[in-house]
Computed example of a mutant assay.
Amino acid sequence: MISRTFIAAGIAAGALAAGIGPADAAPRERVRLLGARTLPTGLTYQGTTVGGLSGIDRDPRTGRYALISDDRSQIGPSRFYTARIDVSPSGLGPVELTGTSPFRRPDGSPYPSMQDWQAHPCTSTRPECDAMAPVDPEAVRVDPLARRLWWSQEGDRITTGDGGPVLIDPSIRRARMDGRYDGSLPLPDNEHITAGDKGPRQNRGFEGFTFAASGALVTSILEAPMLQDGPEPSPGKGAPARLTVQTRGGRVLGQYAYPIDPLSAAAGANGVSDILAADPSGADRYLVLERQVGVSEGQKLSTDVRIYEADLRGATDVSSVDSLADAARVRPVRKKLLVDLSDTGLGKAGVVEGMTWGPRLPTGERTLILVADDNFGAFGPDLPTQVIALALR
């Protein structure tokens, strides 16, 4: 590992980021590491603390990147950043932040924290209140058909001691390029959060989504099984997460069971953190990012990050299946391993939560750019914000 100067607008000269150089590709290797950059924990930019980066996407029209922070308006307003990321056959170059904007509610105000929301509760109907409620941002995509950002948030399922449960549906929303609200994608009927034992688990909603069919379709995936679909992954036993294909207007074209890996011995939780169309013009094949987080020896957090190729062809449409735990004769999505980050020479990976296609290289390789969430330093220096670049043959 070597140290290189980390270039970002607003950073004082001399601030350093750890850099990892490119790895040579063996003749039959499909994936090679181009490099990694580590952003300083606590980095400030335009009055915000840069952290919690849990989603990334590249605008092919400009070559710029959008990154979303999962700050729930606790440290600053829920927001996104724009950046330049230099990728070449010889490695990953500087990462330069170029802007930031808060996401805004339909009335134009920034999203509140949960504490502020509960201090001034909404008295309207639930759909209207959900649009104004606190958000838990997770993924961001640049609309290939319009100058818009689409972003997902996980909603909430909180039991309070005085006023009953707080129920806020997950959602995929549209925003103008300055963060102004521009509508939302209708939610599949079975993915609403309810007061009972149905719907997404707390903090297990829309971790990832992607455009498919050249932007005509939106494919989303839940991080973990819904409550009615059985328990989360355990050692030796995986679990199904629902993957949904919709039109841009929200009509559900199909829903499928994606098989999440069982836990490894050291992991405490495994789930899907992002999905990406393998071919942006297609609608059947996707890259799916699974990441396990656990406690290793010495009570240090460890991660296990794998990217799979998933194929929907031949899978059972489960949109009308109430519970995957009781369903018989359901054929899940087929998947095969594309890359385990531990095999790339990267060393210790952070909590990788987002991925996007980068530029195609002169070598003919496609680049895949990943981002790891530092949880604003909550995991300590061992799991920082990272930008990682891979090259795929």
Rank of each mutant, 00 (worst) to 15 (best):
residue 165 P to C: 13
residue 93 G to V: 06
residue 41 T to Y: 09
residue 287 L to Q: 04
residue 208 G to Q: 00
residue 244 T to V: 14
residue 387 V to M: 03
residue 45 Y to T: 02
residue 45 Y to D: 04
residue 37 R to G: 01
residue 246 Q to M: 05
residue 136 D to I: 01
residue 101 S to N: 05
residue 248 R to A: 06
residue 88 S to H: 08
residue 349 A to C: 14
residue 66 A to L: 15
residue 166 V to L: 11
residue 35 G to T: 00
residue 375 N to I: 12
residue 56 I to R: 04
residue 307 I to M: 02
residue 218 V to N: 07
residue 183 G to C: 11
residue 374 D to A: 06
residue 225 P to T: 13
residue 66 A to T: 11
residue 154 E to L: 03
residue 209 F to K: 04
residue 62 T to F: 04
residue 367 T to E: 06
residue 361 L to M: 07
residue 149 L to K: 02
residue 317 D to Q: 05
residue 331 R to A: 14
residue 228 Q to V: 07
residue 263 L to F: 12
residue 69 S to M: 07
residue 353 E to H: 02
residue 178 D to R: 07
residue 163 G to W: 12
residue 196 G to S: 02
residue 354 G to Y: 04
residue 78 S to C: 09
residue 7 I to N: 02
residue 99 G to C: 04
residue 6 F to A: 09
residue 368 L to W: 13
residue 8 A to S: 09
residue 42 G to E: 09
residue 38 T to F: 12
residue 358 G to W: 03
residue 146 A to M: 10
residue 114 M to A: 05
residue 273 S to D: 02
residue 62 T to V: 11
residue 267 A to R: 01
residue 187 L to K: 12
residue 74 Q to P: 03
residue 393 R to I: 01
residue 284 D to G: 10
residue 321 V to Q: 13
residue 136 D to G: 02
residue 364 G to V: 06
residue 24 D to V: 03
residue 84 R to V: 12
residue 334 R to L: 13
residue 77 P to I: 00
residue 23 A to T: 12
residue 54 S to V: 03
residue 253 L to A: 07
residue 212 A to W: 09
residue 111 Y to T: 00
residue 174 R to V: 07
residue 120 H to A: 09
residue 369 I to V: 15
residue 379 F to M: 05
residue 168 I to L: 15
residue 165 P to H: 03
residue 372 A to K: 00
residue 213 A to H: 14
residue 63 G to T: 05
residue 50 V to K: 00
residue 116 D to S: 15
residue 7 I to R: 05
residue 142 V to K: 00
residue 83 A to H: 08
residue 257 A to W: 02
residue 337 L to M: 11
residue 149 L to E: 07
residue 271 G to N: 06
residue 372 A to Q: 02
residue 351 V to L: 03
residue 13 A to P: 08
residue 155 G to S: 05
residue 44 T to K: 15
residue 107 D to M: 14
residue 96 E to Y: 12
residue 12 A to Q: 14
residue 256 Y to R: 07
residue 49 T to C: 06
residue 139 A to M: 15
residue 1 M to H: 11
residue 256 Y to E: 04
residue 268 G to T: 06
residue 42 G to Y: 08
residue 166 V to I: 15
residue 55 G to K: 02
residue 134 P to D: 00
residue 157 R to D: 08
residue 147 R to T: 06
residue 8 A to N: 13
residue 285 R to T: 14
residue 261 D to F: 03
residue 73 S to N: 08
residue 234 S to G: 10
residue 379 F to S: 10
residue 385 T to V: 08
residue 154 E to F: 12
residue 85 I to Y: 03
residue 112 P to D: 10
residue 171 S to P: 04
residue 38 T to P: 00
residue 361 L to T: 05
residue 274 D to T: 12
residue 281 S to M: 09
residue 333 V to N: 10
residue 40 P to G: 08
residue 270 N to H: 00
residue 286 Y to C: 05
residue 253 L to K: 09
residue 189 D to F: 15
residue 67 L to F: 09
residue 89 P to N: 13
residue 153 Q to C: 09
residue 110 P to E: 12
residue 354 G to T: 04
residue 328 A to M: 13
residue 282 G to S: 14
residue 106 P to Y: 11
residue 265 A to Y: 10
residue 197 D to F: 14
residue 57 D to F: 10
residue 298 G to E: 13
residue 82 T to R: 11
residue 290 E to P: 08
